[in-house]
Structure formats: structure tokens, C-alpha cells
Computed example of a mutant assay.
Amino acid sequence: METASLLLVPHYAAQWQGPSNITVVDKVPPNMLHLVDAHWYQFPPLNPLWHGILGFMIAVLGVISWIGNGVVIYIFSTTKSLRTPSNLLVVNLAFSDFLMMVVMSPPMVLNCYYETWVLGPLMCDIYGMCGSLFGFASIWTMTMIAQDRYNVIVKGLSAKPMTIKTALIRIALIWFFAIGWTLAPLFGWNRYVPEGNMTACGTDYLTKTWTSRSYILVYSVFVYFTPLFTIIYSYYFIVQAVAAHEKNMREQAKKMNVASLRSSDASNTSAECKLAKVALMTISLWFFAWTPYLVINYTGIFEGANISPLATIWGSLFAKANAVYNPIVYGISHPKYRAALKEKLPFLICGDDEHGDATSQASGATTATTVAEKA
């Protein structure tokens, strides 16, 4: 929460000291003014440097996301050994993140150039809808990935394995519910409006009616709290199960009077420690990506602080950055993916991958540890 709290700084600390009689809304085209909340009229325009920095960062994030997620889709789709039901979820995550930045990065760069939203009300709706659609799809795909790993590692042989059909059904349900939540504001339950520095559109968290507020509250339960707690729950028991398995292996090795039951000593780090690091990284990145924007929305509906235009920039930027590091967490940490990447696109491999391959082979002795390495 410390990171998020820093977003709600006094607006005068970050504003450009330009003419005192103009506001951040002055450049907004007349056909957009009916969507702008009165809250934003109290703020002077941002220093043009902020628009330049934001536009540059969004452009960079867009290019990295296109390349990263595009490579994940290509590798998983063209490598036969990676065409598994579980990996369909990884491909869906990459697909959602890829489309998010394809659709949202160019308009924001353009609006940063003009220092306001210049694409009209219809594109504002489309932009806001895309942010909601692809954000929902990414969040729930990550949740499904955590649940699948919980099913395989914790339940083990007693679990019902996921099939291609089951994976496709889950993906279809994710997109079905994502579309439902996305369309709701178009039918009067909340709405999409320009926010902050007026270069992006999102859900309305400033209108004081409970019809508008209730959407934010219910949406946050289904798209923030439920996925977050599900991911934490899943990884907690995954790490616990792998730790118990490793303990049994050590006890068995002690009875056999051998140092280890593993076929290689390539790594001295236990499987549960590796998995705990992956779990911590997954949960932390998820938390830091979406919590700032949640704090901004809750601050708006509960009037907890004076939200500045600069605060909304960082909230939006943190959320979009999630599309950049998802392919790293869910793709590059996958041993078979790294092997396929090394074969097909070796110039994208950073550093020596031999250690990672050896670790993957050493951990292949048992099902639980193998899946832990993939997680």
C-alpha cells in the first residue's frame, strides 16, 4: 500500500506553474466536456514534460509488450511439446496482454502528443471498454493458471487432469464474463470517461450516485479481491505441498545413506525455495500492478483524498506494465519454453541457459517437483 499511497500526493507538488487562469480541462474538445467530472476543473494543466514522459513510457511498454507476448504466442503455438491444456492458459494470457497494448498504447501516445483526449466520445468508450476487457481477461487467466497448478501439485494423482476441452471452456468463460463486465457501463451501470490528465479513459469513479459507485465496488470484488485471494491461496498450498514432498525425499535419501535422490547436483536450491520465489514474484507483481488503480478508484468513490491528475497517470501506467512482465513470469520461467526459445530465437536468450536446463532435468525425478519448476 506504500506504493499506492505515494500516488495521492498533493497536486501542487507535481503541477507545472503555468498561467493561473487555465485548467487541465481547457484543451478538452467541446464534444467531450459532458463526460468530464467537475473534480478536474480545480487542477492547472500538467507540465508538458509529464505528457512527453508518459507518451514515451507508454510507447516503450507497448513495443516491449508486443515483442514479449508475440514471442510467447509464437513459441507456444509452434512447439509441439508445449501444446498442452495448461499452456493454452499461458497463450491466452499472452494474447490478452498483446491485444491490450496494441489497442491502448497508440491512442494514448497520440493523446499525450496533443496533451488531451482528441479521439472523441466513441473512441473514449472503446478505449475504456478495451482496458476493462483485456484487464479482466488477463487477471482471471492468471487466476486460472494458479488454480491449475494447485490442482496438479497439491491434489496430485487424485486430481482430474485438465483437458484441451476443459481449458477451452475456461478460456471461453473468461472472455464471456469479461465482455459482460465491459458492456455494463454502456447500459447505464457506471460509464467510461476521460480521467486525470485527460489523455486516457476509464470507469467513472467520481460520480456520487450509488448506481455508479456500486459498479466499482462489485467489480473490484470480482476482478481484484477474489482473484488475488485465490492466487495467494493456491500458491500457499502449492509451496506447502512441494515443501512436504522435498522433506520426504530428504528423509528417504537419509535412510538410503545417500546425499540426494536427485540425478544431478546442478543446483543447491531446494524446489520449495525456487517455487516460493516464483510465487512471491507472481503475487507481488500482481499486487503492485493493480493495487494503485484500485486505491485511486476507492479514493474517488469514498472521497478519501483529493486525487490529482498525476496520480491517475501512475495508476494507469502500473496496470499497463502488467502486460510487459507477464510473458517473463509465465513464459521465460518455463524450462521447456526457454529450450524452445533458445532453439528458434537464440538471440533473445540472455545469459547462459545451461544451468537452467540442468536444474530442470534434475528436478524431473518427480511429478510434483517437475510441475513446480514449470510454475
Rank of each mutant, 00 (worst) to 15 (best):
K344E: 08
K247E: 14
H334M: 01
N248Q: 12
T209Q: 05
R170V: 00
T23K: 05
W117D: 07
S132L: 12
L93A: 07
M101Q: 13
F177Q: 09
P227N: 02
E343I: 00
S260G: 04
A368N: 02
V90Y: 02
L186E: 13
A362F: 04
L345N: 00
E195D: 05
L280F: 14
A321D: 07
A178S: 15
L173V: 08
T282Q: 13
E246D: 14
M256Q: 15
L183D: 08
L122D: 12
T282W: 04
M57T: 12
V72N: 11
S212K: 01
E251F: 01
E303T: 00
E115R: 15
L99M: 15
I301Q: 07
L119G: 03
M129V: 05
L317Q: 08
L82M: 05
P335H: 03
M123H: 08
I179F: 09
L217M: 15
P292H: 03
F347D: 12
V221H: 08
S5M: 10
P346V: 07
G156Y: 12
P194V: 01
N69S: 04
Y12C: 10
F225T: 15
W314P: 06
N326S: 12
V72S: 09
T312D: 13
S132I: 10
S65P: 02
T141Y: 04
L261R: 10
V242F: 00
Y205T: 02
A375P: 00
M100Y: 10
N248T: 11
C124P: 09
A340N: 02
L122T: 14
G156S: 04
N87C: 02
M32E: 07
T163Y: 02
L206G: 04
S214G: 11
F177G: 01
N257K: 14
N111W: 03
Y235T: 04
E2S: 14
K160L: 06
N326V: 10
L206Y: 06
S316A: 12
W117V: 09
A167L: 03
S105A: 15
V71N: 00
I296R: 03
G55Y: 03
P10H: 15
Y293M: 14
A321H: 06
K160T: 08
W314R: 01
P29R: 08
P227E: 04
